[in-house]
Design a protein around this nucleic acid. Structure first.
Length: 414
RNA sequence: GGAGAGGUGCGCCGAACGGUAAGGCAACAGAUUGCUAAUCUGUCGUCGCUUAACCGCGACUUGCGGGUUCAAAUCCCGCCCUCUCCGCCA
């Protein structure tokens, strides 16, 4: 959520941001409602004031005068009730619109209309040059008895998979590698809950655009987290943190659940796009003046982890159209995937500035002053997609896989 | 699933049980005292009006939402959450 004072004073900028993000919000209507909301509030306050004065008089009045004053109050009460209802209605409409206003992209974000307009800003590594016909991850996975989507379909439906044998060991090796690396950088490891209450979920600012992509358990009224970012961000909601403790950096391991609504027929082969996958996720709560650096730091960490694996990738600056509702700036890392003959998204890191903090009410205190924090999130490893990248990039002609050296230490128990 | 206890000013503890939210701790600012601390004073929730800003004025605030009443933390109804015990269970 944005600050209403900010919207009031920077109307054109906010409108521009909505347009750039392709989110249709009627800012004029919002400001009109805001105007109404405030004038009604003033009116209601005045009426309450008058009534309060009389009420106090009753208390102080002599017994025989009371009835008279009470009779005087009664008609005021009715009028007040009416005004209050009117005010509440406007307030509700106002709030609904407020929640629809997206975060404003930072100035460096290029304007764009679709993912076509994202900008590759960096590339690393040499694409493998196979002197045989490379297979895709599903074929490799089947041959080596690592991936079983047929039985998963039988048990759970499409877009699910069983991972087996070395695929499992590789997944845990990725967890351990990234965890070891990030603990060196002052991160606190967390295993978070992955079911969240609606009120926690609302604060994150994703429901506005993607409620359909979230699983919701009707019976228990709980959302399944689409990423550990959700429980990590909500963890400190309503708290006032000590400025000296910032940045608070967390690294979580958790499953992630996505309905993938609207992506029918897209990436249906293998485990590239599934309803449930495991992920190592980074999250930081920091001071406003540091969030840009923190965001860059997260991007650097993601690259360092990829370089440890030795798999080619490119860094992409998202354009305005590809920024999520709460996001002010976002980079993706796209990893080379031979079977697609293309780079595909494996990581993402976003700076949400104070947008989530305002809704979740996360503040910090410094020199007796309270301010909203900034939140930054980033992928450590999306385990499933990283597995794809490893299988496809490290495949050999005889059908076997060479394990990246950085992971070998974490497979020693084999 | 069953039974009980509880939720009070951004924090913590805690009183008031129909008359309009005591007190304490913590925190912050200032003052003061010759000694890593004490004491005193002030600040210490949200919103609106006003203002360049401060100040000032008003409203709201006892988990949430209704109801009764001139007046609700207090009485009534519904809901939410937390904790404890029992049951079940990885």
């Amino acid at each position: 959520m944005l600050d209403i004072d900010f919207i009031r004073e920077n109307k054109e900028e906010v409108k521009k941001a909505c347009k750039a993000k392709q989110e249709d919000v009627d800012i004029d209507k919002l400001l009109e409602l805001d105007e109404k909301r405030r004038s009604l509030k003033t009116k209601v306050d005045e009426m309450r004031h008058d009534q309060n004065k009389l009420t106090k008089k009753v208390e102080q009045a002599e017994e025989d005068e009371r009835e008279e004053i009470i009779e005087e109050i009664k008609p005021l009460k009715k009028k007040l009730q009416k005004k209050e209802d009117e005010w509440k209605e406007v307030k509700k409409k106002w709030k609904d619109l407020m929640l629809q206003v997206p975060n404003i992209p930072v100035s460096k974000v290029p304007e764009g209309e679709s993912e076509e307009d994202n900008v590759v800003i960096d590339q690393w590594g040499d694409k493998p040059d196979f002197d045989f016909e490379p297979k895709d991850h599903l074929e490799i996975g089947r041959n080596l008895n690592l991936i079983d989507v047929e039985r998963a379909a039988k048990v759970s439906g499409s877009r699910f998979a069983y991972l087996k044998n070395e695929a499992v060991l590789l997944q845990f090796a990725l967890v351990n590698l990234s965890l070891a690396y990030l603990l060196e950088k002052d991160f606190t490891p967390v295993l978070p809950p992955v079911m969240l209450r609606p009120d926690a979920m609302e604060g994150l600012g994703y429901l506005e655009q993607g409620e359909d992509d979230m699983y919701f358990l009707e019976k228990d009224e709980l959302f399944l987290a689409g990423t550990a970012e959700h429980p990590l961000a909500a963890m400190h909601s309503g708290e006032v943190l000590d400025g000296e403790d910032l940045p608070l950096r967390y690294v979580a391991f958790s499953p992630s659940f996505r309905r993938e609504a609207g992506s029918y027929g897209k990436d249906t082969r293998g485990i590239f796009r599934v309803h449930q996958f495991n992920k190592v996720e980074m999250f930081s709560i920091c001071k406003p003046e540091n969030s840009t650096d923190e965001h860059q730091f997260f991007l650097d960490l993601e690259q360092q982890l990829m370089q440890l694996l030795g798999i080619p990738y490119q860094v992409v600056q998202m354009c305005t159209a590809d920024l999520g509702h709460p996001v002010a700036n976002k980079y993706d890392i796209e990893t080379w995937m031979p079977s697609y003959n293309d780079y595909r998204e494996t990581h993402s890191t976003s700076n949400c500035t104070d947008f989530q903090a305002r809704r979740l009410n996360i503040q910090y205190e410094e020199d007796g002053e309270k301010k909203l924090v900034h939140t930054v999130n980033g992928t450590g490893f999306a385990l499933g997609r990283t597995l794809i990248a490893i299988l496809e990039n490290y495949q050999k002609e005889d059908g076997s896989i060479e394990v990246p050296s950085a992971l070998q230490d974490y497979l020693e128990f084999e």
